[in-house]
């Protein structure tokens, strides 16, 4: 690798410039603009000149309904993340340590295949299962014919199921990557030292896969807290989240500054939670 001298600098700039200029115009400047917007007393849509204010952040503190939404969203994010971990980790373990050869490749592909396919369409597909007369309803009536008609759609569980379905592949993917990096000889060494399966998992396998668990959790928690489309489709009016409130400020009430303030409060809360957990996580992962 060459250290940048004058001659290389031009090449580097020419190669990276276009991509980063693009990112600046479409990501970094917009985020800055949005932060600025959250301090404006009037929506940019109003032609009058606006001045700076903290009133939108104050509104969040003064109106308990938004604090409630924030709590619900964080709780929803936590529930979805934990569900993904409980369901995804054993699946990743099976993929990494039990299944071998061509089957592993095929099943891995099966897991990541929905990962990129349209989230909206996949959320919609759950309405087919959960609606009255849908697959879940039919299945229940096969087992218990006298049960009342089941309507799971537009409920909190439906939102959780939809979000878990959307984000589960993330967890399986990240856990799989760190699990398959564990050398089998380490496991054999633990066994030779007399570790039973339980202890082997608790003391060796799980701690070594922690980076994957944490990466997966972060990748799920952040977008789940900010979700609005899944709660709209699967939760209807009931599963209100902060994400839905932000969407409304931009599409319905056109109160952009308040929507922007809510967005940054949400980002701030998520960031605070991640930062609070970071030191403990880093300590457990020393040497990995």
């Amino acid at each position: 690798m060459a250290v940048a001298d004058q001659r290389n600098r031009g090449t580097i700039l020419a190669l990276t410039g276009p991509a980063y200029l693009w990112l600046t115009v479409t990501i970094f400047l917009p985020l800055s603009a949005m932060l600025y917007c959250s301090f404006l007393d009037k929506s940019p849509l109003v032609p009058q000149p606006a001045s700076l204010t903290l009133k939108h952040y104050a509104a969040f503190i003064e109106r308990p309904v938004y604090q409630q939404l924030m709590l619900w969203s964080l709780e929803l994010g936590a529930v979805v993340t934990i569900c993904c971990l409980i369901i995804g980790y054993p699946a990743a373990l099976a993929l990494a340590k039990v299944i071998k050869g061509r089957w592993r490749e095929a099943m891995f592909l099966m897991v990541v295949l929905p990962f990129w396919s349209n989230a909206l369409v996949r959320t919609f597909s759950w309405t087919m299962v959960l609606r009255p007369g849908g697959l879940a309803d039919q299945a229940i009536h096969v087992v218990a014919p006298d049960a009342p008609a089941l309507n799971l759609l537009y409920s909190y569980p439906a939102v959780v199921v939809g979000l878990v379905h959307s984000y589960l592949p993330y967890m399986i993917l990240t856990c799989y990557i760190s699990l398959q990096a564990i050398d089998d000889s380490v496991i054999e060494a633990a066994r030779s030292l007399g570790a039973r399966s339980g202890a082997l998992f608790r003391r060796v396998v799980f701690p070594m896969s922690l980076p994957g668990v944490l990466a997966g959790s972060a990748l799920i928690f952040v977008p789940a807290v900010g979700s609005f489309m899944e709660p709209r489709i699967l939760g209807g009016a009931k599963g209100a989240t902060l994400g839905m409130a932000v969407e409304e400020q931009f599409t319905v009430t056109a109160n952009w500054p308040f929507g922007a303030a809510l967005s940054f409060l949400m980002l701030g809360a998520v960031l605070l939670i991640c930062l609070a957990l970071y030191p403990a996580a880093r300590k457990r992962m020393e040497g990995l």
């Binding site: 917009p30 985020l31 949005m34 977008p223 900010g226 932000v246 922007a260 967005s263 980002l267």
Partner: peptide, 10 residues
Amino acid sequence: AIPWLVIGTA
């Protein structure tokens, strides 16, 4: 990493 909702509205 930032939710698309935030990026989109920004």
